[in-house]
Amino acid sequence: MSKKEMKITGFGGQGIILTGLLIGRAATLYEDKHAVLIQSFGPEARGGACGAQVTVSDEPILYPYVKEPEILVTLSQEAYSTYIGQLRPGGTLIYEENLVTPRDLPEGVKSYCVPSTQIAEDLGRKIVQNIVALGFFTAVTKIVDPESMKNAIKTAVPKGTIDLNLKAFDKGYSYFKNGS
């Protein structure tokens, strides 16, 4: 796998940074890959559009920032508007089906959507919608193995919530698998 540069975006409180962190943990701790996570700080991290920049690569990563992501995940409309212009031509867009309307989608972009909030609500906890999205992301991008991602989840979320989070991940993952 060559270098993959991505941005995970949404609004503050959606678990955006955790999602980025889990991708990095899966790649580095459970696979033999390199990863760098840069998270947004300051006012933007407290509500409004917020983002995590993640680079995953087989080689050591020198330049840490992601300016033109190849993969963009947007879980809110504001984040979509803020970041869609950065998506590389021919890149991949993953978005929350009920929260984002992909207006003026650049040509050549491959887009995939998941009703992650609805799925999370069906599981009884809206809070795990980011993990549903992460499962979907894992299935779409194939950057890391789903087992690695699950290991990363198990060791990062509060103990009492592991099962719920794994279930959320599986739902998101199979939503893509079943749909395609």
């Binding site: 990095g24 580095t28 701790l29 390199h34 760098v36 996570l37 840069i38 998270q39 700080f41 840490p64």
Partner: peptide
């Protein structure tokens, strides 16, 4: 700030 705030293995 970059090294301080970025996350790596």
């Amino acid at each position: 700030e970059c090294v301080g705030h970025m996350t790596e293995k």
